[in-house]
Design a protein around this nucleic acid. Structure first.
Lengths: 356, 356
DNA sequence: CTGAAAGCGCTAACAT
DNA sequence: ATGTTAGCGCTTTCAG
């Protein structure tokens, strides 16, 4: 920078001002031009590390994403990175496991690197990391998952509605005994989709209190298969499954195949997310579409606001999901001949007719 | 740090030495303990930005990955990040498009941030960015894609062998007229898999010079479908397709479906990568498995070496791929009744018998 | 509008 | 083994 100043015949501080868009107005245009020319001639670029040290800012945004189930988070990430880079921010992505201590370390590392803000795609419904970020005064937003209480701004899909759409679709097809393959209840996605499922059942006059439901520990195909096995053996009378997530739904496919049940003839399945390729599996998965990329973009916008006006109130942006009907859902079989517990089926099905 | 020094009753420089693992040996253990206790009591953490400014190093590694086809790159990335973090490095991931200028900007940004090294998952067979990194003296390694000449260390799958395995498998099933859905020839993956395809054909005594082949511009399902349409209409006599990539193979599925051809009855398809979920598509995809995570890990190792001994010669690590047989490949139909150009088929099939 | 000077927090000669 | 000191490259008061 000193060299640029010399070449331009100006002082370094003037060069600094000319180079920084925010302070450029303090410098007379002619000087700016001289500085630019000199900088250009020397192939000079501002040193962001030195600038960071001095200002405490960095034009860097940290993003914490879970290291599994990356199919969903990649578009969030690229959406956010794209939008952020339009505004001069670079992103630094940290893949975190479920180990809470490591999450803190990673976050602290990012903060130590002077990130201007944090996007958390990892939040549980009551997340100590959120408390931490708030205490430290680091502008942060949530994405995909929200907390129980809105302490930070965030953008999520309407998970409650999503699950309801799934149930509505199945009920419309004639299903009355519907099981839920629930996600981890400590995450808002798992929690709200479960609640949406229950509410939708009630809305249709179906028995919600003893609704067939099994929780998967994580959003993986394996855990989905396991939970589906439990669900199917506990309630062989169900004719449809609402899964909290596409990967869980695919796990259900695995379980169904093992048992020798055909989807959708014997059992209908609905997923959630509409991740890539689920239109190509057999049968093509009926699911709830979420625009993850848009979620990432809006999270980026919220974060910028949070950075600019530090005391702005927390806002929750809720994106509308959409039902995508494919081949994994169909009307239930007329006669439930296969069922060993036909009584159970009719028991829960009968009241429905009268109430609906 | 000054405060820590005071509390420990030592000088800042001693504190600095005690805190840094590399210089800790210069300090007597008792002092180290005192420093640690003081730092702990104050909740003090080293400031990486200030350290970077002073040393020119950062314990940061930059990774450039293409922003599409993320299914393949995510495991590379997590594998590399995992291994790197074991050695105290953090990773900063940049998703780059195909715009060459932007690639340079991004790389320069990372270098300006003092990254200790770069992992490039974006390299073309003759990549200006590689030249740039070499000129700048930034320790760098390639992953997944290599250059024509080995200028930097890197780790790739044996793409030539992979394509050969695919052809071998098909020939063994009885196929004689095999088409290739090639990837972008400017990338080593596209180039070498194509070459492997050709060589394997020759090895089996099949006509390699006029082998049916269409190139896809990018590794996407859409481009795969388009290229497959061209391939199928140019050479309706083929009984099998070797795709350079799973996504292209899935695109071929789309094209087949449009035309009303059944896989594997009418046409067999082999993919490349064994990415998640291709075992669930219909039919389950026969493909070449690559351990992307292992690729990431080894790239991390190579990079560390490159950082430690800056003048080490470039090494190329080649990982062995593996054929995974699923449902998308079968013996060709006995009678090629559908074919309009049955002559072409027998023309290339006949010489084979005698040579094999 | 521009120049002068201090200092962000750390490390690495150099000196003791 | 530890203390002293200079300075990495920038920004930002404070003067002029």
């Amino acid at each position: 920078m000193k060299q640029v100043a010399e070449l331009a015949g100006l002082h370094v501080s003037t060069v600094s001002r000319a180079l920084n868009p925010d302070t450029r107005s303090m410098v007379v245009p002619e000087s700016v031009a001289r500085v630019m020319k000199a900088a250009d001639a020397l192939g000079y670029r501002l040193d962001p590390v030195a600038a960071s040290l001095r200002t405490g800012r960095s034009k860097l945004i940290g993003i914490l994403v879970p290291d599994i189930a990356t199919n969903v988070f990649t578009p969030i990430l690229t959406g956010a990175a794209e939008r952020l880079s339009e505004h001069g921010y670079s992103t630094i992505v940290a893949y975190v496991g479920s180990d809470s201590n490591k999450q803190f370390d990673l976050a602290q590392g990012l903060i130590a690197r002077r990130v201007d803000g944090l996007i958390l795609a990892t939040a549980s419904r009551d997340d100590p990391l959120v408390s931490f970020c708030i205490e430290r005064g680091v502008p942060s937003v949530l994405v995909n998952r929200a907390e129980k209480e809105t302490r930070l701004s965030g953008v999520v899909s309407d998970d409650l509605l999503g699950a309801q759409l799934a149930v509505d679709h199945l009920v419309e097809l004639g299903h009355r005994t519907i099981g839920h393959l629930a996600g981890p209840p400590e995450h808002s996605t798992g929690f709200l989709r479960h609640r949406g499922f229950i509410q939708a059942l009630s809305a249709h006059g179906l028995d919600a209190t003893s609704a067939p439901c099994e929780f998967a520990g994580t959003y993986t195909r394996e855990q989905g298969a396991e939970a589906a096995r439990r669900l199917l053996s506990a309630r062989p009378d169900i004719t449809a499954i609402v899964a909290a997530n596409d990967l869980l739904a695919l796990g259900a496919y695995d379980a169904l195949r093992e048992i020798g049940l055909n989807c959708p003839r014997d059992i209908s399945v609905v997923g959630h997310n509409d991740m890539p390729l689920v239109d190509m599996v057999e049968p093509p998965l009926t699911t709830i579409r979420i625009s993850h990329k848009e979620m990432g973009r809006q999270a980026a916008d919220l974060l910028q606001q949070a950075i600019e006006t530090r005391d702005s109130p927390a806002r929750n942006v809720v994106l509308p999901p959409k039902l995508i009907v494919r081949g994994s859902t169909a009307a239930p079989r007329k006669s439930a001949a296969k069922k060993s517990t036909g009584a159970a089926a009719s028991k829960s099905a009968k009241p429905t007719w009268s109430n609906a």
